[in-house]
Nucleic acid binder design. Sequence first.
DNA 1: ATATTAACAATAATCGATTTTGTAAATATG
DNA 2: CATATTTACAAAATCGATTATTGTTAATAT
Lengths: 221, 221
Amino acid sequence: MAKRDGSSTLTENVTKKLRSDILSGQYEPGSPLTVSELAKGFDVSVAVVRESLTRLATQGLVLQNPNHGFSVKTASEEELNNIIQARSINESEALRLSIAHGDLTWESNVIAAHHKLSQTPEFKEANRTLAVREEWSDIHRQFHYELIAACPNPVLLDICRRLWDLSEFYRHYSTPRQQVRDGRAEHKALTDAVLSRDGDRAVEIFQAHIRLTADILFDNR
Amino acid sequence: MAKRDGSSTLTENVTKKLRSDILSGQYEPGSPLTVSELAKGFDVSVAVVRESLTRLATQGLVLQNPNHGFSVKTASEEELNNIIQARSINESEALRLSIAHGDLTWESNVIAAHHKLSQTPEFKEANRTLAVREEWSDIHRQFHYELIAACPNPVLLDICRRLWDLSEFYRHYSTPRQQVRDGRAEHKALTDAVLSRDGDRAVEIFQAHIRLTADILFDNR
DNA sequence: ATATTAACAATAATCGATTTTGTAAATATG
DNA sequence: CATATTTACAAAATCGATTATTGTTAATAT
């Protein structure tokens, strides 16, 4: 690191890397994030790391405890349920608005995103590297984001983005067995409902979809 | 400032002061927030101010432009409408959940908060000082927060809190004439609906309430 | 043996200074 | 005279070091 990369700032790069490390499960939930250690690891000053951690803390991925520094956010079934509920509320509404406002270009983007997702293997085969799983995660996120992308309310979209990060955090702390579920059929049904502009049906499918995600993660039968 | 106040950290104090200054309209929307100047004003180092501004930027009250520093968030009618819509979505649901889960203590708190609000003058008389208006703002906020306080989902409550800040930002950039509206009757009706545990009616009143807020601020019609 | 205080080490918070970047004035070039 | 290049300056970003806080261990007292 050390020198600024392109036009962006050091803090931006470190923040991006840290967020992705946290979301991909590189740190245990609750484990301390020592500013000086991270600074050494990234080869930057403490100010840069501190600013990065401050950003992530405000977004909820990192916990800040005055005079006790930073730590990775903790995980609990209760919190996941709360995140899912918040996602359900906001993303459902964004989905409705997106369906109501989307134009032809948006339709095409939805189809493209779904096609890409449907052709990308998730966890079926064993010996998947971390990189492969990260790639699937990105494509999955992109698919869900395309669905609501035509929502004309950026404030609402921003809330959805943040909630996605929070729920993404949990994906990586599930046991391998829990990864077997294949949402392929659900994604297909969701895409069909969206493209036929059926808001009610799309929301219904979507809510079942994320509810199931939570159930599987914590194995609620 | 200079020395740490109580058990809290310098950054926390500066952040609190800055947020309150921004929300009470001390700075023009879009005006630059120069780190070194603020540091001089608060008598702290630039690191403290920078961390404060970073926090506020992540919350949306401050804009950060890489290599161009920070500025106060800008204001537009369109954005206010988006904020109001997001508030409507989230606060309505929080209100329903709160009504469904609230206990006797919560009821008492709602009654107390409403009483306090109803007995506090807003803008009727002229020559109101800034401090008086700030006091009303706090009490008003407290009232609305009590209504949803029994909502068992902290993630949702956090979203509501942030959205409140964003919409509070607009209250202070309205012309004096727009301040005359008296929400007293609406607050009373809302309180009654909440206490009678009528979720549908409460949500209905609430949505009309905040919609009207937006209309008045930008004088729609 | 337990409680209290003192000294220490680790890390967080804060600082003042240095480097980098963006902008605008000044100068040069065609 | 218009455009390009250089220079100078202000502010942002980053750094390395200093100071403060907290938790822990050793020493002392009860």
